[in-house]
Design a protein around this nucleic acid. Structure first.
Lengths: 338, 338
DNA sequence: CGTTTACCGTACAACGTTGTAAAGACCATG
DNA sequence: CATGGTCTTTACAACGTTGTACGGTAAACG
């Protein structure tokens, strides 16, 4: 059927192990042997059988990336960054979406059969919190992305959620806004992105002496455009007064911004907007959306690098590490007053 | 190290082959044997080693999906649809992005080592044309998505590009618009999406007796928001008069729409817009974007189904098939006059 | 009651690769 | 020119699974 080491070995007049050695850059090979083997490989267009290699070596060369949802632009862009970082190191990426936005679905994917095929997993934590840390103590090497689980069993690459949200909020306060909506909270959540970003919002208020008004905290189910739009409709209908929106991600902001303008309010004159994530779309919305750039590339680079280290090292030999990326405020039209 | 068939067999008191038979639903197994084996599997938390299975059976259980770019919302949503369709059938999906937007990169990915691991490939054709049909005659089962390559060597699942674009154009003409920009053409391209959608545009003009003005055809490099915005800036600067835009995809439309409004024109009053793809974002832009829904789910379902058939059948035993999805005009605010 | 038939379970080999251990080739040294 | 050491190549086994072929047991048939 397919070309194997045997075929190459026969053509080159060597043993299959020598061919294998050439492929794996074993140092002690005579130059002419090597070139003979390479010529044979070329001529036959030989490709290693990855299943066999995986069986023998115990490595598949693939890593899994578990994210909530590809349709969410942030995660699509994150996936892109991870794939780039992984390919640089010769790894495949198996992307997996969580079926739902609940804890069950999250863990099902992590333990499910599909993640059986990978050497390690990059896991973008969504609903898991501190109390679930133990559940993440699995044999497969694991690096967490996103929110921080303190004292977790493994590495964690995250963005400074609190700081980012604080910077965003302070940016609006700097424009003179005082009635700031916090858009995207999850009820009773403290440790996830939503909880942390809410804390950053509160920190900023506190630092500038603006009283915290619970009425201005808007809960949502998910972080899609849809949720931002729906939540904003409710807010407007309720008659709550506000002059700025700190959205916990860009999609929420974009959905809400659309509804605000639909209602006849001007952005940023009546309501200033800032998001979080710096997805591509923020550069083309009307108005363009100010946001926080969390350094996706940095996250991907470090996470893949750490995962690779864990894959190469014996289980338990690497103590849990943490990395926080640098964030950057990206001011655009939605916070630029004429 | 890991749990294998041997461990399960020992615990259940049967041979490894019997365990294998239970796992693979071999019919002739006594109920009590089966339940004993299943109990052992459960107790040990056995998971099959997919590399070994792949080596022995010649199948990996994974299919590859080659797309231009995940950051493009259309492809992210397509990937989502394909993953859903594949999971339903117990398949993994290995997503691969083309490095660049040129023919070299396309073919490099298709033949490259990364697609070695999959049983079959779903390939979203981008720049390849009729003359490249022969290059697609590879041993791996292949199903093409997107544009049509006539008399290609394999199955093709596509959307009616010409018809969709014609319907979109006629929709604008129905509003009384006569100076319609065709946004997103690729110079000298005839067979790809760009060429087909341009033909649909021309067909509509012809059918309604509107003279075709080459000045209104706007070439772009890629189909991102950025390109739509840039192209529109050039058009506006050149002073060309137009009252409608038929964009060849939604991202182009959204990028251009933003620039048009920046320039002080009203949508749809001064310029009506219609896109193509029905990505989620079109529901939340300002104004919401009219578009053509190409039935991504249908594409994914049929493509995965056909690919699976090809994987199961001997090479050459299935004659090339073609399927064109049904399209649907989705009118939204960008073409709704007060 | 012997023979056929269906059913159930097993032993063995093989998939293509790489690690181990060892054999063979080559070179410098005394 | 024998000796020891280094370089180069090889034979063999093993990874965990499934297909093939066959051995056994029980039921059905003549």
């Amino acid at each position: 059927m397919s070309i194997t080491l045997h075929d190459v070995a026969r053509l080159a007049g060597v043993s299959i192990k020598t061919v294998s050695n050439v492929i794996n850059d074993y140092p002690h090979i005579r130059p002419d042997t090597r070139s003979r083997v390479l010529a044979a490989i070329e001529e036959l267009d030989y490709r290693p059988n990855l299943s066999a290699r995986g069986l023998r070596s115990g490595r598949t060369g693939a890593i899994g990336l578990i994210i909530p949802d590809l349709r969410n632009a942030y995660f699509a862009e994150l996936a892109d960054a991870v794939m780039t970082a992984a390919h640089k190191r010769g790894l495949y990426v198996l992307i997996e979406q969580m079926g739902g936005y609940d804890k069950e679905s999250e863990l099902a994917i992590l333990r499910g059969p599909r993640m059986q095929m990978v050497d390690g997993i990059l896991y973008s934590v969504l609903t898991l919190g501190q109390e679930d840390a133990a559940l993440l103590d699995i044999p497969t090497p694991l690096v967490l992305l996103g929110d921080r689980i303190y004292n977790g069993p493994t590495d964690h690459v995250t963005m400074p959620n609190v700081e980012g949200s604080r910077v965003a909020t302070e940016h609006l306060i700097g424009l003179g806004r005082r009635r700031l909506l916090a858009l995207g909270a999850h009820e009773d959540e403290i440790i996830g992105s939503a909880g942390l970003r809410l804390r950053g919002y509160q920190d900023a208020l506190e630092a500038t002496g603006i009283p915290f008004d619970p009425e201005l905290v808007v809960n949502v189910q998910n972080w899609h455009r849809f949720d931002g739009a729906e939540a904003m409709r409710t807010v407007i209908a309720s008659g709550i007064h506000f002059d700025g929106v700190v959205a916990f991600n860009d999609s929420l902001a974009l959905g809400a911004m659309r509804v605000v303008q639909e209602a006849g309010l001007r952005v940023p004159d009546d309501v200033a907007f800032i998001g979080f994530d710096d997805i591509d779309e923020t550069r083309y919305s009307l108005p363009t959306l100010s946001t926080i750039d969390p350094s996706r590339e940095e996250i991907a680079e470090i996470a893949v690098g750490w995962l690779l280290e864990r894959i190469g090292a014996p289980r338990g030999s690497i103590a849990p590490r943490e990395h926080e990326t640098a964030i950057r405020l990206v001011p655009r039209e939605s916070t630029t007053l004429a």
